[in-house]
Computed example of a mutant assay.
Amino acid sequence: MTGYWWLDALIGLVAALLVTWLALIIVLAIVRPRGGLLREAMRLLPDVLRLVRRLAADRALPRGVRVRLGLLLVYLAFPLDLVPDFIPVLGYADDAIIVTAVLRSVVRRAGIDAVRKHWPGTDDGFAALARITGLNRTPPPSGP
């Protein structure tokens, strides 16, 4: 039986990957925009992709923000989806949900003004982006 340790390791690795993937599905379901906001997020995706690229190239932003945005661009360029399209709601919307979550964290770190400065779309589109990501609900920076 000791000759099959690699089979146990392989089964353990597959199980760990499956649990991680299921955790990702649960997180995406929790952070997804609610109601019509998800449809709106998918409609804004082309402008949001240009925004992410511009923010990632802005050297004035903190390095952690640019790294996060760069990883997001790599994820979006990857040809395989982490969430298959046959999964209801999340299958087709996983990219929009992940972009929304990353933009929320970018605004918390870099501020809404940086996002506004680089927004390539219309004012209505930015207002929709603010609703979707909760940018208009960000707390003011805390002082010392």
Rank of each mutant, 00 (worst) to 15 (best):
I132E: 00
D124R: 14
R137S: 11
V65Q: 09
D113N: 10
T100E: 02
L71P: 03
G125S: 09
R137F: 11
F126I: 05
L72S: 06
G121H: 10
V52R: 01
D81V: 01
P88K: 06
D124H: 14
L7K: 04
L37K: 10
G70Q: 10
G36Y: 04
V106C: 08
G36P: 03
L38R: 04
A29Q: 15
R131M: 02
P139L: 04
L24Y: 10
P84R: 01
L72W: 08
R39D: 09
P139K: 03
L24H: 06
G143Y: 02
V14K: 13
L45H: 13
A15R: 09
A96T: 05
L76G: 03
I132N: 01
T20R: 15
F86D: 00
R53L: 02
L22P: 09
L22Y: 09
R34V: 08
A15V: 13
G35V: 07
G35F: 11
T20E: 15
G143E: 08
L44Y: 09
F86Y: 06
M1V: 12
I132W: 01
G121P: 11
A114R: 12
G121F: 11
P139C: 00
V107L: 01
D81W: 05
V115I: 05
R109A: 14
L7I: 04
Y4A: 06
R104K: 12
T122V: 08
T2S: 07
R108M: 12
L18R: 13
V19M: 14
L45M: 15
W119I: 03
G125N: 03
D47K: 07
A127R: 12
P84K: 01
R50G: 05
R63V: 11
W6A: 00
R68F: 08
A29E: 13
A93D: 07
L45T: 13
P139M: 03
L37T: 02
D8R: 02
D8P: 00
V67C: 05
D85N: 03
G111Q: 06
Y75V: 02
G3Q: 10
N136I: 00
G125T: 05
V89C: 05
Y4S: 02
G125A: 11
K117G: 08
G125V: 03
G143I: 04
V31R: 12
R137C: 05
V74P: 07
R59E: 14
T20W: 15
A93G: 08
M1A: 15
L22M: 14
L38Q: 04
G111K: 03
W6P: 00
L7Y: 02
L61W: 14
D85T: 01
D123R: 12
A60L: 15
L7D: 01
A101F: 07
L17C: 15
I112G: 01
R68M: 14
V102F: 05
T100P: 00
Y92P: 01
L135Y: 07
A29P: 06
A110L: 10
A57G: 08
P120A: 05
V106E: 03
I132T: 00
R116W: 09
L49C: 13
L44R: 07
